[in-house]
Amino acid sequence: MEKIIDAAGMGFAELNRLVKTAAEKKIRIERCLGQRYIACGLKDKEIFIDGTPGNALAAYLDGCRVEVAGSVQDATGDTMNAGTLIVHGSAGDATGYAMRGGKIFIEGNVGYRCGIHMKAFKENKPAIVIGGRAGSFLGEYQAGGVIVVLGESGDEKPAVGNFCGTGMHGGEIYLRSERLPALLPPQVRAEKIAALPDGAAELVKSWCAFFGRKAEKYLRSAYFRLTPDSANPYKRLYTVN
């Protein structure tokens, strides 16, 4: 059974209460517009959202599948632990902040500071796949996990903005691009790779499956792989006082 919630004109507190207390595993939210904190801390549900959910969607998510027909806003997937988020649109700033597990698939672009302080833990390896372009500070302080940018933005602008990987000290970023982004910080190592490794290729295939694209086109492209140069990039020289 699927529970259908018409969110038109509904405040976030009421909507989220309905979602949390629903007996049904499957929930469909229709006419969603700006309601914040949807699916916050939730697990074991399948939520489909039609519209534009508000900020902090899927924060602390602990194992749901959330699919959005539309764009999502800022702080999506903050400290997400597990689950899958599929967005048929773009995402705002700080997407996947400190996420520790689960996967986020964005069809379009993401804003600034996507994947900031993303980290891996044991079997949890978070992943973000971005179909379009990423804003500046992609993977800032990244400590683990995988970010893939496919760069399909329909314009001439570069696939990622400035200061990509600032403070990065773990994990990997794959950029589908012919040229490297400007201003890579010195502690980030970039290498051109002939083919995506299996894990990243699987992510790209999943992304293609979700958004009805042909995987071949994306798998055959040139990618740059960005990794931190050492595990401890910012061991600034301290002197004990």
């Binding site: 914040r36 904190y37 916050c40 900020n55 902090a56 924060a59 602390y60 800022d74 702080a75 903050d78 700033d93 700080a94 902040y97 520790r100 500071r113 900031i116 302080h117 980290k119 891996a120 833990f121 800032e140 302080y141 400590a143 683990g144 403070g167 000290h169 773990g170 595990a231 401890n232 910012y234 061991k235």
Partner: peptide
């Protein structure tokens, strides 16, 4: 801490989703 053994644990100076009281409100309500 839920991080791998031996990696640096770096806390950014700000919360990168809080640049104002309105943003703080968002984290409080999250």
């Amino acid at each position: 801490r839920m991080i791998p053994v031996g990696t640096d644990a770096i806390s950014p100076a700000p919360h990168h989703d809080i640049y104002s009281i309105e943003d703080l409100r968002q984290l409080v309500y999250t």
